[in-house]
């Protein structure tokens, strides 16, 4: 295989001269078009119909008074007014922000710590990496159910610790509307910080090993080395991880459904669940699509600066 390919490459220059004149090159390109277009047609349809079409449709529906079935009247921003007067939606938004800040911060700190510590030539590095990452292979449903059981106030962790003799031990986050959200954060961090670790570890392994040697000769303490020298170097990877986590926050749905169903009460409602409920259960398409549009805007607000910083100036290669 390999030798065949090199042979072909060697043959190339001779023939390329023949094909160089501008006219024949242009003709050749025109000739390839049908099959290329045929191959790219599915992508064009998906982009046009689903990504752009459905998105526009959703935005359009959010300006109608649609209930169970879509109607195509125009009520301006009525649905949005209603949305931002809706206690449940406001709680959802607030939850998203609180969850997002805690979840992202915890994932970044834990992921960074794990990556840095695992990079200290520890024993059983492979095993530890495998352990830290495996939750990421699980779905949010499995994650949510596992944690729901683990944190079960009557029979889970709290009871077990009390049985062991610590009678006053209290860890019933799921039962309390004030703390249920933190239980979601815990489960989310469990599922996602391994991913941050993998991304940052790849960054750490790309750092010139001579830098570490230079720092040791200079007598720079390890923590200072990581803070002042390595952290800026892997900055772009931290940003990438942050964006990924932020997107996951906006999309947060499965975990809530599995772990708390939005409860107790509406304590752990999130926008994605608000949309699903209003579209498919509460028969309020207008309000649901308005909430979906708010989600879209949120994602764009996160995404645009990042994409601009990353590809805007240089038009480099994605991810």
């Amino acid at each position: 295989m390999h030798t065949m390919l090199t042979k072909e490459r060697e043959r190339l220059p001779v023939r390329v001269d023949v094909a160089t004149p501008a006219g024949s090159a242009r003709r050749a390109r025109r000739r390839i078009r049908p099959s290329t277009l045929f191959a790219l047609a599915p992508m064009a349809v998906v982009v046009g119909v689903v990504y752009l079409g459905a998105m526009a449709w959703t935005v359009r529906l959010s300006t109608t008074s649609s209930k169970l079935l879509p109607t195509y009247d125009f009520v301006g921003l009525d649905q949005y007014e209603r949305l931002f007067a809706n206690a449940r939606f406001l709680v959802s938004l607030q939850n998203m922000v609180v969850f997002g800040v805690l979840f992202i911060a915890a994932c970044l700190v834990l992921g960074f710590l794990l990556a840095v510590l695992i990079d200290q030539r520890v024993k059983a590095e492979g095993l530890l990496r495998t352990i830290y990452l495996y939750p990421h292979a699980l779905s949010f449903i499995v994650t949510g159910l596992a944690w729901q059981w683990f944190l079960n106030p009557e029979l889970g962790l709290q009871r077990a610790v009390r049985e062991a003799g610590f009678e006053s031990f209290a860890f019933a986050w799921l039962a309390d509307g004030e703390t249920a959200l933190y239980a979601l954060v815990l489960a989310g961090v469990w599922q996602s910080s391994g991913l941050v670790m993998v991304i940052l570890l790849a960054g750490l392994r790309g750092v010139d090993p001579d830098l570490w040697k230079a720092a040791r000769v200079d007598g720079i303490p390890a923590w200072r080395y990581y803070l002042s020298i390595v952290l800026p170097l892997i900055g772009p990877m931290i940003v990438t991880a942050t964006v990924l986590l932020a997107i996951a926050v906006v999309k947060l749905y499965d975990l809530v459904v599995a772990m708390t169903k939005g409860g107790p009460g509406i304590a752990t409602e999130v926008p994605a669940k608000f949309v699903m409920d209003h579209l498919f259960e509460r028969a309020n398409v207008g309000l649901g699509t308005a909430a979906a549009t708010v989600m879209l805007v949120t994602v764009l607000a996160v995404l645009t600066p990042w994409l601009y910083a990353r590809y805007g100036s240089t038009s480099g290669r994605p991810a």
Binding site: L37, V46, V47, V50, Y51, Y253
Partner: peptide, 29 residues
Amino acid sequence: VRGANVLFAILLAGAFVPYQVFLYPLVRM
């Protein structure tokens, strides 16, 4: 092909958008 990279850019950006934005129209379709 002219425009293919724009298509691809939209497609990629679409991967970041929550499903909720597309679901209802898709169900209708």
